[in-house]
Write a protein that binds this DNA or RNA. Sequence first.
RNA 1: GCGGGCAUAGUUUAGUGGUAAAACCCCAGCCUUCCAAGCUGGUGUCCUCGGUUCGAUCCCGAGUGCCCGCACCA
Length: 503
Amino acid sequence: MDMANGTSLIEEIVSLCKRRGFVFQSSEIYGGINGFFDYGPLGVELRRNIKDAWWEDMVRRRDDMVGLDSGIIMNPKVWHASGHVDGFSDPMVDCRESKMRYRADQLFAGDVRVDGQSLGWVCLLESVCMQDDAEKKAESMKRKASRQGTLEAIELRPFDELSSEEQSLVPSPATGTVGSLTEPRDFNMMFETNVGALRDASSVAYLRPETAQGIFANFKNIVDTGRVKVPFGIAQIGKAFRNEITPRNFIFRSREFEQMEIEYFIPPDEDAWPKYHREWIDTRMSWFSSIGLTKDFLGEEVHPSEKLAHYAKACTDITFKFPFGEHELEGIAARGNFDLTQHQQHSGKNLEFFDETRKEKYLPHVIEPSLGVDRTFLAVICSAYQIDEIEGEKRTVLRFHPRVAPIKVGVFPLVKNKPELVDRARKLYQRLQRKWNVIFDQTGAIGRRYRRIDEVGVPFGVTVDFETIEGDGSITVRDRDSTEQQRLSEDELVSFLDKQINP
RNA sequence: GCGGGCAUAGUUUAGUGGUAAAACCCCAGCCUUCCAAGCUGGUGUCCUCGGUUCGAUCCCGAGUGCCCGCACCA
């Protein structure tokens, strides 16, 4: 996709989303707030349809899945066990001159001393040969200073373990200038809050950065009460919060978002996970196609083993070619039994599963397909958005799959000033309204009303005309994508719509 | 967090140191027998707060938001 075009394409989509009530910037009348969005009348329907489709296909239509809705705030110990509190609060250091950014624990510095006197500090990025490099640098510093004497051994320490006086002596690894590095700054992505009336260290709690830990924390409850047998999965849809440094790309990366996550528990045998991992990738990929994502925009990206977290066995992303680039839609990770092991240790509760057929206890391993509602929402719109031409006129159309379309049917009297048409159309509207989200529109010319529903992705327009009230009672159904019409009786219409909308 | 650009109606944009404009959209009415027809009317704190000025939407500063690049993204 060419980028010059891509930029304006996403702008067009953002503008359409606002104009037609899909997505608004949060708190817009107060100047907005970076990284938060609100979903308008059409947006909320689309979101709901996406979530319903996922829940229907991943939970209700499967024998091996159960659902869960855990709270956003949990005991903070959960996030210590999961590693989110300690592991992911990387302090970062910026170089003011070169604008480079470093993780403080990957930046090593040491004092260069000759006969007890400091010549200044050296600073290097973490590497296997950094000790050698440091000594070479020290030699050259000694030569430049024309100093005699013996170089002392250099003790390299991570930047974040130095005192702030020491930090201020460290030169930038990029430019060599002393004083160019900032103090380490915390970039923990979890939002903190306080539980209870008192605000102190003991009241700190976190807004969950993922829904997955709620599943692990409830694993024992579900095993004890849910009549489940490995392999089985627990699914959850819910809000999650990450204090992203730079939210970007519209709703693609925001600070408050909604996840649809599955933890699928499998036997711990080493040959088990590759099979289940592959199955889930295929299942999820075909699900994306089924709700109307453009196949050519979907891709798979396997994480190289050296970039995996230490506990992960594999991770494959399902990616989507957004107008601003190809990015992750869903991550499907084989996480071993890392999470259950952690929670078992930290909680002191036995979380082992007793396998009846094998007559043994074990901590199941897990496959984690984890998807963002908001990213799916954007991918659905990007797949659906099209500008085409009808009889020389441009039209903007959202070709939503009928299953996710916010509004399923538009019902129209052919003209407004004939009460019989209007009454009959209104009756039909009321009948359809009991089953689907439909709209009634009698304003302006019929063509205008068709175009208007095209732009919000309504798949079907039905029109009550003179043949309906004077002839055989049939109505016309107009297809959004082909713009072709067919005449059906009301009963035929209802079963036609049912087939199209609920596959 | 850093650097650059931008901020005018619901949307896209024009414009000005002296009380702001177009197109489209939207709402109401008239008209209309199948793909954005026409007519009439309606809808605006020029992002916020300071400063300069007799007077600021315009100039200056700060903030906020958006876009692009860097960095970050468990």
